[in-house]
Design a binder for these strands. Structure first.
Length: 662
DNA sequence: GAGCACTGC
């Protein structure tokens, strides 16, 4: 077994202890506090914090900032507090309700998609996801029912956080009475200060940067970089178990494959564990697992044993596990990036940001003091970028721009982005919106564009919902739209269980392709009583299918609002496929003899994703449309349906001749 | 012939 050379925790080697003051700008960020921050402390550390007598800041025991309003909400106005994730919105609302001494949904409530636990008359503090608040701006552009808006976890820089900040800056000019509070946990608090200052809003917007309660965490870096961090992670876990006192271990790797490999290495060694060492209980943690599998991670380890949780980034912010004393950080993460030139998105493994490194280390100090082993050197640490690139700079902007236009932001170059997306992404999205009839040649929203902007699915799918009126297949298109929106409907485990799952999947196969196969799965799920055991026996994800049910019913309400019929096509698959083409006509592809496809736009070589029912089969017509295209080792297309090529012409003439077919 | 970080409306 390799001997790993770490700088010993607690010694004074370079980067040997978690010294936040060295890693961050301590004029903005507090050093790791072990007691609750007082108002005074917050004021001292925040350059433009504006303190109001009638507002009390409190840092609760779980480290989340809680606002206790005593004046601002008294005129019947509401304080909104946004969170990037649904679980955070609901759980923080619950804690605040109990601190205030009311039941949830009364004075304190929350609103997330599919769930509104608030009272129109009585709720004064409303927790919501940032996506929900952004959507509300489409209906009420000045957000007039709110007197205070607090954007929490702003450092995560989700697309909706960035959009909200931009909109709030605009609203603030028209509604000077609106109080805005931006709460950010890490290094870039200063960038929010700069952002609002540049519009003359300094001293009017509060930027708060508060750390949660944390125990000290010692940091150890590798002395030499490792060529194989998966193996090094396994070695490190092994050494911790032999050398360090009791306490569970959390390992950060980038994806399922690495996690399985690391766990295999550890499992192989378990028989050689010395008799006096603690037995290890091994767990994987990633989003692809079932709910039960994820929950098993939270069960306390049996006395005398040690839990090892090998996880993706899900454990960095979304999931919190108590009892972790040791963190092993690979220093890498997978991020989605988008290339506007090729319209392709891809997942790439990149070094984490400094903010992530600090966040991961902090996972060792939530319930006791701990140690973080970084599988990179302290000089590697210095080369990390301070924060993760905001999502808005690396995503397809089609929906974003449609929604901004609906808000009256016609000149996208004049919109005050916190961070501007690449101009090419903006142009590519605009081009797509013009081609699909959402935006006219002058850049203004069309009538259908107005309606589609309100629809909570991507533009292609919304177009299909509208077209379903002509093809008389609203019922089926609703289901297909919901099913393509949820991911991971089919559970394909590793090894022999995977082959069995494959067989189960074939039972739902439709000749015409994946869209109709998904329709079959949904209908069977409903027919068999939406049962989770039925899902399990057919290798389907109960979570994904339940979500599809919710999305479908939300979309159905939307269709009814716009007088779109939801009649069934009565098994007429041809009509249904023609309707699909109305949404996907830009995603056409032609089969070629080696089993790959060529895109109609650009003639790119496309490979069918192995999950497709057309993976092994040539479509009879030789032509397909596909739901999405992604760059992996190759360019892959997912969710295919066979079509007749002349169906493309009904739409293509609007686009191809004019733009030279590129 | 082979794969999937994480959210959100």
């Amino acid at each position: 077994m390799a001997t790993l050379q770490f700088w010993k925790p607690g010694t004074t080697g370079p980067g040997s202890t978690l010294d936040r003051a060295n890693e961050t700008d301590d004029s903005v960020i507090s050093s790791a506090p072990t007691t609750s921050l007082s108002i005074q402390a917050a004021r001292e550390r925040l350059p433009i914090h504006k303190y109001r007598q009638n507002l009390l800041w409190k840092n609760d025991s779980l480290g989340t900032l809680i606002l206790f309003p005593t004046g601002w909400a008294s005129e019947g106005n509401i304080i909104a507090c946004t969170q990037p994730r649904r679980v955070a919105a609901t759980s923080v609302a619950g804690r605040v309700a109990s601190e205030v001494g009311t039941i949830i949904g009364d004075e304190v409530g929350y609103t997330i998609r599919f769930e509104d636990v608030s009272d129109k008359e009585r709720t004064h503090i409303l927790y919501m996801t940032d996506g929900i608040l952004f959507r509300e701006t489409l209906v009420d552009p000045l957000l007039s029912r709110f007197s205070v808006i607090m954007i929490d976890e702003a450092h995560e820089r989700s697309v909706y956080t960035d959009l909200l900040l931009g909109i709030l800056k605009k609203i603030r000019r028209k509604r000077p009475s609106l109080r805005i509070i931006v709460s950010s946990a890490t290094l870039d608090a200063m960038s929010f200060v700069d952002y609002f200052s540049s519009g003359g809003l300094e001293n009017e917007v509060t930027v708060a940067s508060l750390e949660g309660r944390m125990y000290p965490v010692e940091i150890a870096h590798l002395e030499q970089p490792t060529p194989d961090y998966v193996k090094t992670a396994a070695d490190t876990v092994w050494n911790i178990n032999l050398q360090q006192s009791r306490g569970d271990i959390l390992v950060f790797l980038t994806g399922r494959e690495e996690i399985d490999r690391c766990l295999e290495k550890l499992a192989e060694r378990l028989p050689n564990l010395p008799r006096n060492a603690s037995p290890l209980k091994l767990f994987a943690l990633h989003a692809g697992l079932s709910i039960q599998e994820q929950l098993s991670v939270f069960e306390p380890a049996e006395p005398g044993t040690r839990k090892v949780i090998v996880s993706t980034n899900i454990a960095e912010a979304s999931v919190t596990i108590d009892g972790i004393k040791y963190v092993v950080d690979s220093g890498f993460v997978k991020v989605r990036t988008y290339n506007p030139t090729t319209s392709l998105s891809s997942l790439v493994t990149v070094p984490i940001s400094l903010a992530s490194a600090i966040q991961r280390a902090g996972r060792a100090g939530r319930t006791m003091s701990g140690i973080c082993y970084r599988l990179y050197t302290s000089s590697n640490l210095k080369s990390l970028s301070p924060t993760t690139q905001p999502e808005i700079t690396r995503t397809d902007l089609t929906t974003v721009i449609l929604q901004l236009k609906s808000l009256g932001v016609d000149d996208l170059m004049k919109f005050e982005w916190v961070t501007s997306p690449p101009a090419e992404s903006v142009l590519r999205a605009l081009e797509g919106l013009v081609a699909s009839g959402m935006v006219d040649e002058d850049g203004r929203l069309t009538v259908v564009g107005e309606k589609v902007a309100e629809c909570p699915v991507e533009v292609n799918l919304a177009r299909m919902l509208f077209a379903s009126k002509d093809y008389k297949c609203g019922d089926e298109i609703l289901t297909i739209a919901a099913m393509t929106t949820v991911q991971d409907v089919f559970i394909i485990p590793d090894g022999s269980a995977g082959a069995l799952a494959e067989l189960e999947r074939r039972k739902f196969t439709a000749e015409e392709g994946d869209h109709l196969t998904l329709l079959n799965v949904y209908n069977a799920f409903v027919r068999y009583g939406r049962s989770s055991s039925w899902c399990k026996s057919h290798a389907l994800s109960f979570r994904a299918l339940s979500r599809a049910i919710s999305i479908r019913s939300q979309l159905k309400k939307y269709m009814q609002r716009f007088d779109l019929p939801t009649e069934s096509c009565q098994g007429d698959a041809k009509r249904l496929r023609q309707c699909l083409v109305s949404g996907y006509w830009r995603n056409g592809a032609r089969w070629v003899a080696d089993g790959t496809y060529r895109s109609v736009r650009g003639n790119t070589v496309l490979h069918v994703h192995p999950n497709s029912v057309l993976f092994t089969r040539k479509p009879r017509s030789g032509w397909v449309i596909f739901h999405e295209m992604e760059e992996t080792k190759k360019t892959q297309i997912r969710i295919l349906t066979e079509i007749e090529p002349d169906w493309l012409l009904d739409y293509g003439h609007k686009f191809y001749p004019k733009h030279g077919g590129s």
